[in-house]
């Protein structure tokens, strides 16, 4: 049976991209560029910096395609982590003090319609369960886990930013992540 390139699994496109297959490389970049740029823009804030970060992320993915391990993450998740780390490196030049964690949290739990409805639909389908779980957290816990997971702030940085004791910041981060995990398992069990 034949399968159009656009319907190929993510892993196959990544392998083709890494090996220099022209058609699969184009398909790979087209499939993931909006997601990669979205993460870069959400963290970097500046479109120009975000473009540089997104391009670096694709270059890094190309160089390290052979290191991708599907047991550890989806291709999209792997690319997201690469992009986040590069964006955080770029953001270290501009301290995170300018970030608006409330705005970032709002965009995560209640995203605005994107210019790419199809892409948003796919992303929403994949992430809908986690989005619901994040929405169900107390606000201070959700903010703490977003500051840690998205912005890369340590517990002490979160404590300073939120004006709370270090122990409280750690408790919020740990509780939030455990509750997210528990909520995901409950929702998955209900859907099974």
């Amino acid at each position: 049976m034949g399968l159009p390139i656009q319907d190929l699994p993510d892993e196959v496109l990544l392998a083709g991209y890494g090996q220099g297959d022209p058609e699969l490389a184009v398909a790979f970049v087209r499939r993931f560029q909006a997601r990669v740029f979205g993460v870069a823009l959400a963290i970097a804030g500046n479109p120009s910096v975000a473009e540089d970060v997104a391009q670096q992320a694709f270059v890094r993915a190309w160089r390290h395609a052979g290191a991708y391990d599907p047991r550890r993450a989806s291709v999209g998740g792997w690319l997201g982590v690469i992009t986040r780390n590069l964006a955080l490196d770029a953001a270290r030049v501009r301290p995170a003090a300018g970030l608006d964690p409330s705005g970032l949290l709002e965009r995560l739990v209640d995203p605005a319609p994107a210019a790419d409805p199809e892409g948003l639909l796919v992303a929403a389908e994949a992430a809908g369960t986690l989005r619901e779980a994040l929405r169900s957290l107390p606000r201070e816990q959700a903010t703490a886990v977003v500051l840690a997971g998205m912005v890369g702030l340590s517990a002490s940085q979160i404590a300073e930013r939120e004006g709370i004791p270090l122990g409280t910041a750690k408790t919020r981060v740990r509780t939030a992540l455990r509750r997210l995990r528990a909520e995901l398992e409950v929702q998955r069990a209900h859907r099974a």
């Binding site: 909006a34 982590v81 994107a114 992303a123 997971g149």
Partner: peptide, 11 residues
């Protein structure tokens, strides 16, 4: 998975 919550944006 938190990263997958970020809305896509056209470059």
């Amino acid at each position: 998975g938190l990263l997958e919550l970020v809305p896509p944006a056209e470059p």
